[in-house]
Design a binder for these strands. Structure first.
Lengths: 244, 244
DNA sequence: ATCAGCGTTGCGTATTCTGCAACTCGAACC
DNA sequence: GGTTCGAGTTGCAGAATACGCAACGCTGAT
């Protein structure tokens, strides 16, 4: 494991909490100023950090340029965006878009409930497959071989008492998802959150993404969330149509 | 400058464009696989990168979280954001925000004209100083010493026939910019694009950023673009006021 | 005017990183 | 089913690289 890199990452993490001076960083890491300076210089050259006129260091623009570039790579995102916005405005709830990539369900876009603003924090991060609506939708759509492989390899972390914790329970659940054409998450990831999700399909009927709506139970109980299902299905249908 | 760190940053940059395999990264950097592996391991431990079950590497959750932090910590950007959105909606045109960082004019935010969707493509990239509105605004605001140093060192790449191609022409132009309080780009960067830009100033009158509006000439001719000037100046004035 | 605090530089040392070679694992192909 | 190819992983010895020291310079405060 690379020492200097490791220290550089610590620096970035520290800068994530706020701006720092050289000495501050040096004492924080417990290394000499010189060392920190060299690392900062390297990162500054690539714009991963910048420093303002008062010699205080901050995170650089390269960082968000990178994240944006990575997030923009999914084609589904572009097509889905306007529809997601509509769904978000109609329901007033948090909307997620996820896509299947190399054995994972990746969040590709997210629209928050409050203020209809994008909250990116989770975008680019994989979703749990056994306890999220999008995870179930995408996993259910995989070919049987791969599905079984995933079922066998999952860790089934029990986030809440409701979480499905074994391959058998999840297999049944997935069968249900395929039969219904949509999935639920009844407080399985966060005990106070209920979600419903549905697939986006291309012209060949292959599932290329999943959309979900998440609602905290203080706002709507589970039955009320189900009333949003028609809206959700209309949205995924529209996206699927546009996708071709 | 730290070699290993520098290579690690190259890796991140590459992963920003898409997922990569170990060998792919090794050949891209021109170093041994072992070296890349060690770097990746260190970054993986801190979740700056992760790999899926097919051994393909991609950016990790920590990086996305940091990117969001970087965005929020960019004061000018945060303050300007709502105003830029307004300007974008009122004019319907592409709006850029740039800031002077490390001796360059960096695009920090961008709102696209055609769709409601954000196109981040240019964010984090430096703007040409001799042929963009924001570049001129920011360069014009630099102290004379530094300004002259830049004037002498620029390459004056002639993107179009309209591009200013020498230090003398640019110096005159900058004098005009300071006198007027705004800058233009009459097809100097892309022949079919006209832009106007204006500075954001802090309480001490120091220029901390620049906003520009860009319009393709198929939509508006140059005189019509100038009619947007009051809107632009109102925006920069409002941002400047909020900045304090 | 002096001092304190902080960032910066040059340099010798040894720690850390590097690349080689060999090994493992899995898939693909005959 | 055996073989070969591709890709990732490990141990190791040499050497380049990163480290910390000490001294310098700058800026702002007392």
């Amino acid at each position: 494991m690379s020492q200097s890199l490791s220290r550089a990452l610590q620096i970035l993490a520290s800068l994530g909490e706020g701006d720092r001076s050289l000495d501050q960083l040096a004492t924080e890491l417990g290394v000499h100023k010189t060392t920190v300076l060299r690392l900062l210089r390297t990162m500054e050259a690539d714009r991963f950090v910048r420093r303002d006129d008062q010699h205080r260091y901050r995170l650089g623009s390269r960082l968000f340029a990178l994240a944006d570039a990575a997030r923009e790579q999914h084609v589904v995102r572009e097509v889905a965006a306007p529809h997601l916005r509509q769904l978000n405005q109609k329901t007033g709830q948090t909307v997620h878009l996820a896509a299947w990539e190399n054995g994972e369900a990746l969040y590709v876009d997210k629209l928050d409930s409050v203020r209809t603003v994008r909250m990116y924090s989770q975008v680019g991060v994989p979703a749990a497959l056994h306890c999220t609506a999008v995870g179930k939708v995408l996993l259910a759509a995989q070919p049987k071989r791969q599905r079984e492989a995933v079922l066998a390899s999952l860790e089934y972390h029990a986030y809440t008492p409701q979480t499905l914790t074994g391959p058998d329970a999840l297999r049944d659940e997935l069968d249900g998802v395929r039969a219904n054409g949509w999935a639920q998450d009844k407080g399985e990831h966060e005990s106070f959150m209920n979600c419903i999700g549905a697939p986006i399909v291309d012209h060949a009927g292959r599932v290329v993404g999943a959309v979900s709506v998440s609602v905290p139970d203080v706002l709507l109980n589970y039955e009320q969330v189900l009333e949003l299902l028609p809206e959700l299905l209309a949205t995924t249908k529209a996206i699927s149509a546009d996708y071709n």
